[in-house]
């Protein structure tokens, strides 16, 4: 297999992680533009996974380069009683009253896990979203994050570096700016589903630029210390 031959270390890491997680993953040799993906975006009350909470999760499946709006889902998460949305409402536009009819986080997380089956997750700035999701999965469902992830932010930055483009930190890296740079729809909505769609479109554009394979741009999940099952 070509990919394994070119990237033996990555291939070995990928296979080890898959054995460890035991999930249903696509072949690492698949070109990204043909792979089954799930673009995900979260809205949170803040940036600290220890203190802040997930407000909403939106996702869209991508199959062989086609974003299927028919598979889109958008979940508002019910908050724990002590918390209020507070100042973050000015960012994501969800007020406490909007969350009144929200679901228990367990339901949304289970739906997400079901949608992820057989797919690679795509985030813009994956470390932050992943940290929130890993925490929520561990505390709510006693399970670990199961899928490899693609980070369109890191990918986009890598491409900018490769093309020798200077990028100022900050502005050039927002999802909106990255989309604009690739001639895509530049949304500034701060709505989980809309951002997930922007992220999906950006992933398709990046995939078509480099014809990268999953192995080259997707990270298998890091082994995490699972508080529930340690020893």
């Amino acid at each position: 297999m070509n990919a394994a031959f070119l990237h033996p270390l990555r291939y070995w890491r990928w296979q080890r992680a898959r054995r460890h997680v035991g999930g249903n993953w696509p072949s690492p040799a698949l070109p990204v533009e043909l792979a089954p993906l799930l673009a995900i975006d979260l809205e949170m009350t803040g940036l600290d996974p220890d203190r802040d909470e997930i407000v909403s999760i939106g996702w869209l499946p991508i199959d062989a380069g086609a974003i299927d709006l028919g598979g889109a889902q958008d979940h508002r998460l019910a908050r724990s009683e002590r918390e209020t949305v507070g100042n973050s409402a000015t960012v994501h536009g969800l007020r406490d009253c909007d969350l009144a009819d929200a679901q228990a986080p367990d339901v949304a997380l289970r739906a997400l896990l079901a949608a992820l089956d057989g797919r690679v997750a795509v985030f813009h700035h994956a470390p932050l979203d992943l940290a929130f999701l890993q925490r929520a999965l561990a505390s709510r469902l006693r399970t670990a994050w199961p899928a490899p992830t693609i980070d369109t932010l890191a990918w986009h930055r890598r491409r900018l570096r490769m093309s020798g483009t200077q990028h100022g930190h900050g502005h050039e890296s927002t999802l909106e700016a990255a989309c604009r740079r690739h001639g895509l729809v530049a949304r500034s909505q701060h709505d989980a589903l809309a951002d997930a769609l922007s992220c999906a479109e950006l992933a398709l554009a990046l995939a078509r630029l480099g014809h990268a394979r999953l192995l080259e741009v997707a990270q298998p999940p890091r082994p995490v210390r699972d508080p529930g099952r340690s020893q």
């Binding site: 380069g65 086609a66 974003i67 709006l69 028919g70 999906a200 479109e201 554009a205 078509r208």
Partner: peptide, 9 residues
């Protein structure tokens, strides 16, 4: 909600 989106170069 029924659309499919594709990207072409």
């Amino acid at each position: 909600g029924l659309l499919i989106i594709r990207y072409f170069r």
